[in-house]
Amino acid sequence: MLNINNLNKQFESRVRLGIMSVLMVNDWIDFSEMKELLNITDGNLASHSAALEKANYIEIKKEFVGKKPKTSYRVTNAGRQAFEEHLAHLEKLINPK
């Protein structure tokens, strides 16, 4: 039976949907690239990525390259599975064959 409640609430935001979509096709991506790809503010990216990290859907790596801080992201196995399930539920809603 089709049920909209099967959709993952972590992915309701367009920003989180965008973050996960980018990470599903990239190994690691840095803060600047992600921000540019999604056309969002620093604060928007920071808050949404923190929420996805708390859910164990993404990993955030902070390091220094030379003297500059660098933040990078990648999807976790749990995140990949949760996002694939979310997409499968969306597919069933759109095309309920």
Rank of each mutant, 00 (worst) to 15 (best):
N56I: 09
Y57K: 06
D42V: 14
K70H: 06
T71P: 03
K97H: 12
A82H: 01
V25T: 14
G66A: 05
R14I: 05
W28K: 11
M34F: 02
V15S: 07
F11N: 00
K61S: 06
N39D: 12
V75Y: 00
V75E: 00
D30M: 10
M1T: 15
H86R: 11
A78R: 06
P69N: 03
P69Y: 04
E63C: 06
K92N: 10
V65G: 03
L52C: 10
N39M: 06
A55Q: 05
E53A: 15
K97S: 11
V15P: 05
V75D: 00
T41Y: 15
M1N: 14
K67W: 14
E59S: 10
P69C: 10
E91R: 13
L7Y: 14
L93E: 12
A46Q: 07
H48P: 03
R80N: 05
I60W: 07
R74L: 05
L90I: 10
T71I: 10
L90S: 03
N5D: 15
H86Q: 11
K92A: 08
G79M: 01
K70M: 11
D30A: 06
A51E: 11
E84A: 12
N56V: 13
A78Q: 13
E91A: 11
A88C: 06
A55F: 09
S32M: 09
L87D: 03
K68E: 04
N77Q: 14
P96H: 11
L17Q: 13
M1K: 13
R16F: 15
L52Y: 02
D30W: 02
E85C: 01
S32P: 04
K62E: 13
V75T: 07
E84N: 10
H89D: 09
L7P: 04
R14F: 14
I40W: 02
S21F: 12
G79T: 00
G79K: 00
L38R: 04
L87K: 14
N26L: 09
A46E: 08
V65T: 05
N6R: 15
L37G: 01
N6C: 11
P69R: 10
E59M: 09
I58C: 01
D27K: 10
P96Y: 12
S72K: 05
V25A: 11
G18D: 02
N77T: 13
Y73G: 00
E33F: 12
R14Q: 08
K70P: 01
L93H: 08
K61T: 07
D42S: 13
